[in-house]
Design a protein around this nucleic acid. Sequence first.
DNA 1: ATGTAC
Length: 355
Amino acid sequence: MSNITIISNEKNWIEQTAINQLEALANLPGVVQTVGLPDLHAGKSPVGAVVVSEDVIYPHIVGGDIGCGMGLYDTGIESRKFKLDRWVTKLSNIRELADIQTDNPYEEPSPIYDLGTIGGGNHFVEFQVVDKIYDKEVCMALQLDEAMLMLLVHSGSRGYGQSILNTYDNPQGLAADDEQVECYLTEHDNAVLWAARNRKIVVNKLLAYLGYTPRPKKLIDCQHNFIERRGDRFIHRKGAVSAERGPIIIPGSRGSLTYVVEPTKNTAMAAFSLSHGAGRKWARSLCKSRIRNKYDRDTIRQTKLKSRVVCHDTDLLFQEAPEAYKNIDTVIDSLLQFELINVVATLRPVLTYKG
DNA sequence: ATGTAC
């Protein structure tokens, strides 16, 4: 078995199923390094995982949502002008983002059928305000202005990435000299590109819908499902972010803070990768029964941070409740303990929209 | 996660 590194500490619980899944990946032919980040949890393929291989790629490790990631935008609107009740009402009037017209501003036709939508599951759009600045210099370099309202988009390549996986998926992987590898990686790169474009389009149309001239400024956009070619190696990241592309965003749940962090230079032991979020703690199927008596259909739409969430699917709100996720502070503590990050700032959610 | 598979 290739070497496995688990980035975690005694306070950060990781389910055994996820570890077993990670070990299975470490045993695949050609795998030379495997990392479980503190947000590791079980999935079709484990999430919060990094798999480094030689001479072979495994499209199924990355999965169907190629290019999925987090885009953090400055809305151009001052936080003090945020209108909670008015925006909640406005957003409640649309059933999904597809109800707002989408214009493709790019020359090529979009390979994403549902351009301008975020999809379901754990995807979201969230207005956030700056909670605390920890590193003024990095914030200056990022142009992160504490007076401004932020918009964080979590979405991916929608059906497009899935269609790419369907074309190239093979449990044996693809040998690096197989001509299919270049074809897959070309399409993969296009999915990464269009997933990021999609996040930007969502920001623009949402601001326009709320009545603002959209002039958002991209602060950070980091994908967490993708393959990076690094020399003769391939770094598969599933729910894991590159630590070599500047500061990244690690959101908690809708009921906790989002962290902006800067990678240190010590990330080789983590295959140059960092966490993508808090990580799921409860299986979707268990959530509703566990917290049903704690909430009703109104209170599940508010959080202890006094933020609100607009979503027409009440079942999904239970599946995505803050309780279903690990404590983001514990995840951050693990990364700090391994000296993989420095905290730059924290952001506080004020209004979340889910499809 | 999915213009939601069987």
